[in-house]
């Protein structure tokens, strides 16, 4: 069992095991997180999202190199999907970042999306709390943004980088609902391919057209070739300048409140569902209903309605 004091001292073995407890939904994890939480809140959290194959992992690898030249401690959470068929997963993101594996100031952790009870955002948020409390200055979350239910990267990160590649006019269209609204920095990777400038232009136009953000940060568009570090130093600088911008304009506190509210909401949903379902499952009404369904006396719709209406009778305290 990992010790709180070891995690706070930055022990990778303790931190990794703590994240494992979170993934395995171990009740101990919750108690430990409560004790770690007050120590978190200092890291700059970057979300990197974009379609499969645009080079997110390679770009993060290159970003790690840049942040390391500034001697910053960097952690990465790379999320890959769990197979809905077998429950297994191949976690291949860190493959592109392996040259940093032996660097003791870099911590890379793959997470499978699993069928997380509370949705992936909560497990990821929990892991961020651990890494933050361990003292990592930069935490990068990598995820395939689109198509992952309940994954709200905007409520997990200070700065969102959206990665795309040239020649995907349709791809940009495809991500524009939702994700485009949350992007702080847009990255046209593999920009040695044709039409990179056209992609940048399209993104610039879309940024011009979108509703001005409350924060007055103007989203930036950058070209990179992650594989040979081209444009990556500039990208790292832009991320850091976004962080500075947030600090100078008191946006960090605002963001923190927003993040805490969203964390609270997902916890509320989880804990309620967990308790309520357990209670219902064990109730006589539920057992009776199950028997009636298998006897063909009642249909599942009416049975579920009956049980819920009978058990969930609420009276407010105030």
């Amino acid at each position: 069992m990992p010790e709180i004091k070891d995690i706070l001292l930055g022990s990778q073995i303790a931190g990794a095991r703590m994240i494992r407890l979170i993934e395995d939904n171990d009740p101990v994890a919750f108690e430990m997180l409560k004790r770690l939480y007050p120590h978190a809140g200092n890291a700059f959290i970057i979300g990197i999202t974009g379609s499969p194959g645009v080079g997110k992992s390679t770009l993060i690898d290159a970003l790690i190199t840049q942040f390391r030249t500034l001697d910053m401690k960097v952690a990465v959470i790379a999320v890959d999907p769990t197979s809905p068929f077998s429950g297994g997963a191949i976690l291949g993101d860190r493959l592109r970042m392996q040259r940093h594996a032996a660097d003791k100031k870099v911590f890379i952790r793959s997470m499978a999306s699993r069928g997380q009870k509370g949705g992936l955002s909560r497990a990821t948020k929990d892991a961020v709390v651990v890494l933050d409390a361990m003292g990592y200055e930069i935490i990068i979350i990598e995820t395939v943004g689109a198509g992952q239910a309940e994954f709200d990267i905007a409520s997990l990160a200070h700065s969102i980088g959206i990665v795309t590649i040239p020649g995907t006019g349709d791809g940009i269209q495809a991500i524009k609902a939702g994700i485009l609204e949350t992007g702080d920095i847009f990255i046209v990777n593999k920009s040695d391919k044709p039409d990179a400038d056209a992609s940048c232009h399209q993104l610039d136009m879309m940024i011009d057209m979108r509703k001005p953000s409350e924060t007055n940060w103007t989203a930036r568009v950058l070209k990179t070739i992650a594989q040979n570090q081209t444009g990556v130093k500039e990208l790292a600088d832009v991320f850091l300048s976004h962080f500075d911008f947030m600090k100078k304009n008191n946006l960090i506190d605002l963001k923190k409140k927003e993040m805490e509210k969203s964390y609270f909401n997902s916890l509320l949903k989880d804990l309620t569902l967990e308790k309520l379902l357990l209670f219902m499952k064990e109730s006589e009404d539920c057992k009776k209903a199950e028997k009636k369904i298998s006897a063909g006396v009642i249909d599942p719709l009416s049975a579920a309605e009956l049980v819920v209406n009978k058990i969930c009778v609420f009276e407010s305290n105030d």
Binding site: T82, S83, S86, G87, G88, A89, I90, L91, G92, R94, L95, Q98, A101, A102, S110, A112
Partner: peptide, 19 residues
């Protein structure tokens, strides 16, 4: 192993024991 329901991390080639 994935198909057997495990979570598999693949390191890639040419890894040192330290890595």
């Amino acid at each position: 192993l994935r198909d057997a329901g495990m979570e598999v991390i693949y390191s890639g080639l040419h890894q040192t024991l330290d890595q």
